[in-house]
Each structure stands twice: as structure tokens, then as C-alpha cells.
Design a protein around this nucleic acid. Structure first.
Length: 204
DNA sequence: TACCGA
DNA sequence: GTCGGT
């Protein structure tokens, strides 16, 4: 792998684990095993590494989501598998990343918002519309309104002022919000199908 | 690796 | 004192 890819991969891993602000250029150099001089041959500044890390992260995330979209038998399986995927992502990322992005790295934060407001929004809306047509989700739903609600509630769970992490289990907050969301949209038929996937998981 | 400026 | 940048 190229030196540039190595640096980016190492930086991304450190950022995911510890956040953006607390990781220094020296930390990255040490982790990757190169000098800071080498890093600055590929990246203009820290802002550039953060931006490219964020870009790489969401590009990979997008490919994984597309794999699920293309290989699920029905909308219930899609939303179930994506929720599992999101759960893993949520556990793998230090929540301070979002705070750091917003506060210190506006350009990278903009990239994140773009991902959230285009790809995430469009794919979730497609899933909801498909689910309604298949009779799994309630036909009364306004999917455009609910997609925004769902995306923003995920973001809300990352906000330490809203669900302080010294009082709430981060993972449990996400689980609760998803459970509440999914049960608010399922029809009877959808619930049966959803429970099938839950039961398969317990048997596995 | 040492150093400077913020 | 810390950290991005030289």
C-alpha cells in the first residue's frame, strides 16, 4: 500500500478511536511509523488529513450500505441489516468526533452533512416507500418528514448535552431510539416479518 | 529532532 | 503547557 494510504488509514483509525482534536500530528506520525515531514509531503495541514479521513470513511460506509440495498430480499430485511450496520458503526466511533468536526473542522463537517442529507436521506426514503408499497410500513406515513426525524434522532444521540454519557449508556440510547422508530412505522404484517428476522438472530 | 509561534 | 507546522 502507498505511504499516503497508510497515513490516511492510520489517521482514520486514531480519529475513530480518540476523536479529532485530541490526536496530534505527532501521534499520527508515531502510529504510522513515518516522520511528520513525510506526512506534510502528502497533506497540506491537519485539516486536510481530517477532511480526507472523513471522506474515506463515508465513501466506505456508502459502499457497505449499497451492498445491503442491493442484496436484501425485502424492505424489512434492508432496514434490519442497515440498523445492525449502523449499530456497529456507532460503537466503533468516538462520539466526540461529531463535536470536533462541527467545532474545529468546518470543511470536513460540511462533507459529513452532505453525506447525511443526500445519500442517507435518499436511501432511507426509498426503503420507507418500498416498505409502504409492500404493506410492511403504515401507508399513513409521510416518508419525507420521517426520514428527517430518523436521521436527526441518530445525530441527537451523539450529543453529550442531550444524552450525557455519564448518565446514559450510549449504545442503549441508540437501541431505544431505533426500537421506538421501527415500531412506529410497522404494520401488523410488517411486525411479523420483523420478528422473523429478530428470531433468526437469536437462533443463530 | 529541535524549534517557533499561536 | 500544548500542538500545528517548518
Amino acid at each position: 500500500m502507498s505511504t499516503e494510504k497508510n497515513i490516511l488509514e492510520g489517521a482514520k483509525n486514531l480519529f475513530m478511536q480518540f476523536g479529532l482534536k485530541s490526536i496530534t500530528m505527532d501521534d499520527i506520525a508515531k502510529k504510522v511509523g513515518v516522520s511528520k515531514k513525510t506526512i506534510y509531503q502528502f497533506f497540506n495541514d491537519k485539516n486536510s488529513i481530517v477532511f480526507k479521513s472523513v471522506h474515506k470513511h463515508f465513501s466506505e460506509h456508502r459502499i457497505e450500505i449499497e451492498e445491503v440495498l442491493n442484496n436484501s430480499k425485502d424492505p424489512i430485511e434492508t432496514i434490519y441489516r442497515i440498523s445492525k450496520h449502523m449499530q456497529m458503526q456507532v460503537e466503533a466511533i468516538n462520539p466526540t468526533v461529531f463535536y470536533d468536526l462541527q467545532r474545529y473542522f468546518p470543511k470536513a463537517y460540511k462533507r459529513f452533512l452532505e453525506f447525511k442529507n443526500t445519500f442517507m436521506k435518499e436511501s432511507l426514503q426509498q426503503i420507507l416507500d418500498d416498505g409502504i408499497n409492500a404493506g410492511y410500513f403504515r401507508k399513513e406515513l409521510d416518508t419525507e418528514i420521517l426520514v428527517i426525524q430518523r436521521i436527526e434522532q441518530v445525530q441527537m444521540a451523539f450529543d453529550n448535552d442531550i444524552y450525557p454519557r455519564d448518565r446514559f449508556d450510549f449504545k442503549k440510547v441508540h437501541e431505544q431510539l431505533f426500537d421506538h422508530f421501527i415500531h412506529g412505522i410497522l404494520t401488523i404484517k410488517g411486525k411479523e416479518k420483523y420478528n422473523q428476522y429478530l428470531n433468526e438472530e437469536h437462533e443463530a
